[in-house]
Simulated assay, not measured.
Amino acid sequence: MRVLVAGATGVIGRALVPLLASVGHDVTGLSRSAGRSALLERAGARAVVADALDAAALDRAVREAAPDAVVHLLTAIPAELNPRKMRQEFALTDRLRTEGTRNLIEAAHRAGARRVIAQSVAFAYDPDGDSLANEDTPLWQAPPKPFRRSLDALRELERRTHDAGGLVLRFGHLYGPGSAFDTDGQFVRQIRAGKLPLVGGGSATFSFTHAHDAATAVAAALDKNATGALNIVDNDPARMSVWLPEVARILGAPAPKRLPAFVARLAVGGWGAAYLTRLRGADNARARLTLDWRPRHTSWRTGLAVELNGAVAAAK
Rank of each mutant, 00 (worst) to 15 (best):
G202N: 07
I191D: 00
A221T: 10
H212Y: 11
I232V: 15
A226M: 07
L230D: 04
L196C: 01
I232F: 00
D223I: 07
D184V: 15
A215R: 11
I232H: 00
A204T: 12
L230K: 06
G200Q: 03
D213I: 14
D182G: 04
G200N: 02
S179V: 11
F208R: 12
F181N: 02
D213F: 13
I232E: 00
S207R: 07
A221P: 10
P177S: 05
G178Q: 00
V233I: 09
F181V: 04
R192Y: 01
S207H: 04
L196T: 06
G202Y: 10
T227S: 10
V233M: 02
A215V: 13
A211T: 15
I232L: 01
S179P: 02
N235W: 12
G202S: 09
D182M: 03
V199P: 04
R192W: 04
L198Q: 02
L196M: 11
D182I: 06
Q190K: 14
V188F: 00
L198D: 03
N235V: 09
A217C: 08
T227R: 13
D184L: 08
A219R: 14
T205K: 14
N235H: 14
N225Y: 02
L230Q: 07
I191V: 09
F181D: 01
A219D: 09
G201P: 14
A204F: 08
G202H: 08
T216I: 12
K224Q: 13
A229P: 00
T205Q: 15
A193Y: 02
N231E: 10
F206Y: 14
F208M: 12
A219E: 13
F181K: 06
A226H: 05
V218Y: 15
L222F: 09
V199Q: 05
R192E: 14
T227D: 03
A180F: 10
A220W: 09
A226P: 04
T183Q: 11
A215M: 12
R189G: 14
P177V: 09
D223A: 15
T227P: 03
A229K: 11
K195R: 14
S207C: 09
T183L: 13
Q190I: 06
L196E: 04
F208G: 06
D213H: 12
A215K: 11
T216N: 02
V188R: 00
A219V: 09
G185Q: 03
A220E: 06
G200E: 03
G202R: 08
A219N: 09
A214W: 00
H212L: 11
A217I: 13
T183P: 00
A204M: 03
N225H: 13
D213S: 10
A215E: 09
F206N: 06
L198F: 06
T209P: 01
A215F: 11
N225Q: 14
F187M: 12
L222R: 06
D223G: 12
S203T: 15
L196W: 07
V218I: 15
I191M: 05
Q186V: 08
K224A: 15
G194Y: 01
A220R: 14
K195S: 10
F206D: 05
